[in-house]
């Protein structure tokens, strides 16, 4: 079992603890939890990301896109992921958080102003097939729960490719656009599973194609993975990824 509960929710946490206690058992002997931290608590993203370079990057052996421009998390308090219905996330992603939100191709280090928050874009290569947004936020000492991430990347196609599909997994909900058009929506309290949601047949232009995504998460882990599949369900080959 695992409650996805955020520290935003002390009240609920208290209720749960009380509930367990009422059942006649000391559920969480929190005080006894004395295991030592093995991980590096001096926060860094270095274990998960490297700064993107100008060197062309190809998708990994299975076609996953590992180079992304990631915006530091926007605060979006949510006590649970079960509220992420299609309507909710459409509305959440229709909302303008920063200027040129749906058109911007930012540069590494660019800033975006979102309400009171000033957030920075980071051009990164993920060391994993997936992009661990939780680790990105945690490593940068940013909020990890109740957050909304924006991600942008550029896929260069050597020729026009018809009938390809964008295959996505995300934790939790997310929405994705290819060249400004909505390509996929992932609603609900989701785990990141490769090829969980797959777009309808799309066309990759010859040359640059801009992929934009937004991931929203209340409590728990947040991450995503994206790749392109051909008509036979095989990863599309021959693409390069850049961030400009």
């Amino acid at each position: 079992m695992n409650f996805k509960r955020t520290t935003l929710l002390l009240a609920v946490g208290f209720l749960i603890s009380t509930g367990l206690l009422l059942q006649g058992c000391s559920a969480t002997s929190k005080g006894k939890t004395n295991s030592t931290s093995k991980a590096d608590t001096a926060r860094s993203i270095a274990a998960y990301f490297t700064p993107a370079t100008a060197k062309p990057k190809t998708p990994d052996a299975e076609g996953f896109l590992q180079r992304w421009l990631l915006l530091e998390p926007i605060n979006k308090p949510n006590r649970t992921n079960t509220v992420f219905t299609d309507s909710y996330i459409r509305h959440a992603f229709d909302t303008l958080y920063f200027s040129n939100q749906f058109t911007i191709l930012p540069k590494d280090g660019d800033k975006a102003k979102v309400g009171e928050q000033e957030l920075t874009w980071h051009a990164l290569d993920s060391k994993n097939f997936n992009v661990k947004l939780f680790r990105f936020a945690y490593g940068l000492n940013k909020p990890v729960y109740g957050v909304l991430f924006w991600a942008v990347t550029v896929v260069n196609s050597p020729q026009e490719m018809k009938d390809v599909r964008m295959a996505i997994g995300s934790n939790s909900a997310s929405m994705w656009w290819l060249n400004g058009k909505e390509a996929a929506i992932l609603s609900g309290d989701r785990r990141m599973v490769m090829d969980d949601v797959v777009s309808t047949r799309l066309t990759l232009n010859k040359g640059k194609n801009i992929i934009r995504g937004a991931v929203i998460n209340g409590p728990g882990m947040s991450d995503f993975c994206v790749r392109f599949l051909d008509e036979k369900g095989q990863p599309v080959k021959g693409l390069t990824i850049s961030y400009e």
């Binding site: 996505i168 090829d195 969980d196 949601v197 797959v198 369900g233």
Partner: peptide, 18 residues
């Protein structure tokens, strides 16, 4: 099934659970 959560129409392939 083109993805776990996505249906589509495609050629039938008995060798695939899709």
């Amino acid at each position: 099934s083109s993805g776990d959560s996505t249906p589509t129409l495609a050629e039938f392939d008995f060798n695939s659970d899709n």
